[in-house]
Structure formats: structure tokens, C-alpha cells
Computed example of a mutant assay.
Amino acid sequence: MVNLLKDATPVIGDAHGACTATQRLSTLSGLNFPVLFILMTDKRESTQANGDAEVSQAARLRRKLGRRLRLARVARGLSQQGVADAMKAYGFNWVQTTVAKTEGADRPAQFVEVVALADVLGRDIGFFLSGRTDLDRLKDEIAAERAQNDREVEVARQQLMTLEARGSDIARAQLLALAITAYTYDQDVEELRKSLETIQLSFYSALRASGRVLDAAKIPRRIVDEIDRSACVSAAQALLEANGEMKGVHFYRPVQVGPEVDGRRRYRSETLEAREVVKLAKKVVEGGEVSNYFLTALRGTAVWGATAQDMFVRAVVRLVEPRDSDTE
């Protein structure tokens, strides 16, 4: 503290010396240079050049300092005379009226005085300039910690969703492997159909996630795409026959909502009208390209599921070799 006060001594001088010393104090204290300069050179006369704005800012800072000084003094249990006596120990010729005028913003305070006051009253120097307390800073720290925790929770949630999706794919692959394995033993087509019905609603995902199962069963992976195309056409034809409406099935398109936030886009679903569904269904039947959203909706129809399941059963019967029931 003594060294800091000594470094501040050149402030009581010309403007150039004040600027130099203020810059040094700014580095030492970590406070904003313009704020320090106003506090430390406040005794100079206002000129037309610096204008009313600078005077107003200096007055505002004096009022803030006065309020914070009184709060800190009262909290410390000191009288104005007690503060004045403590300031004398730092070499300042303060009396009770000096404290009263400083609290009332009736006199400018030099920065070295603010430094000494902070030490006398056991406060951080920023308290007198910004009014922020340790609790304010702690509150900001906690808010930052909570924001960081929320981000980590979101990352963990995304990771969990990925793991759950992977778990679902593994479960579907397992069911498909069990169904094909059972068929190789008994060649029971109806039992194979029943086994596949347990995953019918997610049959497309099951086929996509079961590449290793198909390889082991000697079923070419390209069959999955062939099945998908044929099943989508069947579902689209059913839509055309129903004029774009299918009981229990709704078709949507994504519509972006607002601007991107942190590189992420938000969407809402907008229901497609029947005439739009018919138009897209015609494109599918004719071999045209449509959005993945529409294809995903087609894969969720009963027509797609029944067609895909039937085609896959026929592929298994045609390509998978049966084996003797005694084979381990």
C-alpha cells in the first residue's frame, strides 16, 4: 500500500505527469484508465473543450464515491472523525469535515485518497468506483458456473441420446440376427414374418443398422436400398389412390424459426396439404427426388412396412442357406 501511494504522488502536478502516473496506477490497480484520470485530476478547471459531459461524469463519480464511502464507513462502525483520524495515519490532513464533504460529493477526491480509504475501510478499491461488492462478484461467478454446467449438461444429454440411439440400433440388429438364425434351423417362413413384425415400425433403421448381420447371412447390402425404393413407391402409390390422405399418417415439412443461435437452427413442423402430398408422391413414383423428410414419413406408413417386410422375407428365403438342426 505504501509503495502504491508513493507511485501515486506525481499525480499532483502537471497534466503530462498526471497521465504518466495514472497509467502506472491503472496497471497496478487493474482499473480503467479514463476513470482513474478523472478521479486523480479532478481539481483542474473545466474548459469548453472538455465540455459539460466531462463535468457531469466527474460529478457522477464523486457522488458514487461519496455514497460508497458512507456505506463502507457505517458498515465498519466508524464515525466521520474516526475515518479522518485513520487517514491522517496515511499522511493526509483530513478532518471530520473532509469526510463529510467527500461523502456529500462537495469535494473532489484524489486517487491516492481512494486507495487509502479502501485500506482503512477494508474494501476492494473497485467497491468505491463501481459499487460492486464481493457478493456481486460471487453472484456473477456462480452465474458463469451455472451457464458452464448447463452447457456440459447439454453435451451430456446429446451424448446420452447418441448412446440410446446406438443401443436401439444394436437391439434391432440383435432381433434381426435372431430371426434369420431361427429360420436357418427350421425354414419356417411364417415364424420369420412374426419375428420381423416386432421391429416393423423401425424396420428401415433395423436394416440400416444390421450390415454385419446381412454380411454374415450372405445377404448383399444393396438389397436394403432396393427394398427401400420399392416400398417407398408402394407407399406413394397408396397415397395417390387416397388423394394424399392416409389415416393416422401426417406429412410435415420443417420451417426454420428465427436466426441461428450458436450455429444451431431451430425448426417447427408445418403440415403439408393433401395436394402437396400428392405432388410429392407422384415424384416418388416417377423416380424423382424428394426431401428426406417426406421419405422418412413414407417409411413410417403401414404400406411401406408391409412391403419391405415381405421383400426381405423373400430375400432371406432365396439367399440364406438352411442348416442342419444339429449344427452348433
Rank of each mutant, 00 (worst) to 15 (best):
D262I: 01
T133N: 01
R157Y: 12
A147G: 07
E164T: 12
R44L: 11
T20A: 13
A118H: 02
D186G: 01
G211M: 03
V2N: 07
E321N: 04
V35M: 09
Q237P: 00
Q158N: 15
T271P: 03
G263T: 07
V99L: 03
H16N: 14
A72E: 02
H250E: 15
L135C: 00
V35A: 04
L298Q: 08
D324W: 08
K88V: 13
L71F: 09
G305I: 03
R166P: 00
Y204R: 11
A72K: 01
G82R: 03
D52G: 09
L78E: 11
Q309W: 00
Q23N: 12
I142H: 09
N149Y: 09
F111S: 02
D14P: 03
R222F: 13
R132A: 09
K279I: 00
A105S: 10
W304L: 02
R229I: 07
D186P: 00
T181I: 01
C19D: 13
Q96R: 15
G244V: 10
A217Q: 05
D228I: 10
V313Y: 08
V284D: 08
F127D: 02
L295H: 06
G288K: 06
S291H: 11
A100W: 11
S168V: 06
R323V: 12
I219S: 02
R208G: 00
G167K: 10
S79Y: 03
E190M: 06
T296N: 14
A53C: 09
G131K: 04
E245D: 10
K279G: 08
S325E: 15
D186L: 09
H250S: 15
G248H: 05
N50D: 15
G91V: 05
S195H: 05
R172C: 11
G211F: 05
K64L: 15
A59N: 15
L272T: 08
L135D: 09
S46K: 03
Q200W: 00
A179R: 06
A209C: 01
Q309L: 14
L239W: 05
R132W: 00
N149M: 13
P259L: 07
L5C: 05
D310V: 03
V255Q: 14
D169W: 06
K88W: 07
S79C: 02
R253S: 10
K282R: 14
A297N: 01
G258F: 12
R266L: 13
Q256K: 12
T9N: 03
L69W: 02
R63P: 01
S46Y: 11
T181D: 15
V233C: 07
S56H: 11
Y267I: 08
A105D: 07
I219P: 01
D262T: 04
V155A: 15
E45D: 13
V278E: 11
F203K: 04
Y293Q: 12
E190C: 00
V114W: 02
F37L: 15
A18H: 13
P34N: 13
Y204D: 14
R123A: 08
P108H: 08
R208H: 00
